[in-house]
Design a protein around this nucleic acid. Sequence first.
DNA 1: TTCCGTATAATTGTATACAATCATACCATT
DNA 2: AATGGTATGATTGTATACAATTATACGGAA
Lengths: 233, 233
Amino acid sequence: MASYDLKNEVNDKYSLRGRVFQKLREDILSGKYKEHEELKEVAIGEELGVSRTPVREAFRQLELEGLIQIVPNKGAYVTGITAKDVKDIYMIRSLLEGLCARLATEKITKEQMEEMEENIYLADFHAAKGHMDQMAELDNRFHDILYEACDSKMLEHTLKDYHQYVLRVRQKTLSTNTRGRASNDEHRQIMEAIKSGDASKAEQLANKHMLNAYDNMVKNGLNEIYGDEAGVL
Amino acid sequence: MASYDLKNEVNDKYSLRGRVFQKLREDILSGKYKEHEELKEVAIGEELGVSRTPVREAFRQLELEGLIQIVPNKGAYVTGITAKDVKDIYMIRSLLEGLCARLATEKITKEQMEEMEENIYLADFHAAKGHMDQMAELDNRFHDILYEACDSKMLEHTLKDYHQYVLRVRQKTLSTNTRGRASNDEHRQIMEAIKSGDASKAEQLANKHMLNAYDNMVKNGLNEIYGDEAGVL
DNA sequence: TTCCGTATAATTGTATACAATCATACCATT
DNA sequence: AATGGTATGATTGTATACAATTATACGGAA
């Protein structure tokens, strides 16, 4: 299911649809297009200098990624994420990242383990320097390594979907210095559990890591952003 | 994310793209198109009397559903499901159906509970009569009710995706009389746990229900169908 | 024979024209 | 003034023509 994804992305860089897709994806994730904003085929086509056809196809891909919704005969709208969605996603991720860590304990390769260690080491450095952007990127990469290491393309695909889905929210909330440090410490614990072959511990730690990340988001004003739209948090 | 899905499907019935989508979906699930078979835009367009445009768009939707893969500049291929995929899906579903049952214990509505009871009652009848087709349909419906009852559109969407994904495999393997009965008994236990408000028990039972379903598949010749392609089962 | 390159055919990618649908504004009627 | 209907514009849906890419077949050179 996901085995060709990477290849496709590379190829897509050279197709108009691929370029439109990447541009729109970036603009949605960065917040240029707000929630529930309507995306019009001709407007975007003109802006990027292409016809409607590749734009329409890019729309379908964006829908596939969950970034927009297409309503027949009406239009394409940037997907809204409610506070409840975020809560549910972290609940689901908590279970699945745990499973992922458990599987990775048996399946992780030497190279993946080394990249993981390097990732944590680097994150320590950037945490000390207060480089929040690099921290965020390393955090993303850590989880991607974990997803790849579990050797299950079904699980990897699902986790990547959810991971990306919350990126929009996270960019605005995770950027507190203290959480960056704590998060990396938890990464280290997970890594060590995997390295020592303790699958249950790795599962438990990855589990908790997600719940902690969510708690931190709530503390740091998720309510202010996505607040009442979804009720309780 | 999934809140408009139903509405779209209804609307799509009246668009060419929607009709092409449904036809192809049915043909893939029923096995008319074999795994890894290439779907050609013009051939399908001619067969259904439409141009390439709606066919192309239907392809994107099918990719969204995980039924085909599109390789840029090459073609669209029916997604292959390996034995390992099936194993991974059931592992994931075991966790998520557990979570779903737990959430449903608090959120289920009176109407949903009644439909669930009716479903189990009917399944008893058809089990006695040996009506395997109805049993399969009721089984599908039971899980759909559960997904809706958890009141999380993120979780519901993910579970429905996986559920559909294994339908192709299940149609060929679940049709043993004994499993149909046992499966319905497990449904009843889950339902009763939910009804009594015991969320932990419901989670645990739903968990086990998935693992049992998987074990049954393995026993009943999953290997013969998807066998060596994926290695161990 | 084997290998490589070119020519040809088949297939997907893109642009554009036209049809169908939906939103809006305006006018008529009550 | 409020309501309803029609006309107009805007937007998406579909068909088709053409461009770009890929696969295949064939022929020549080593």
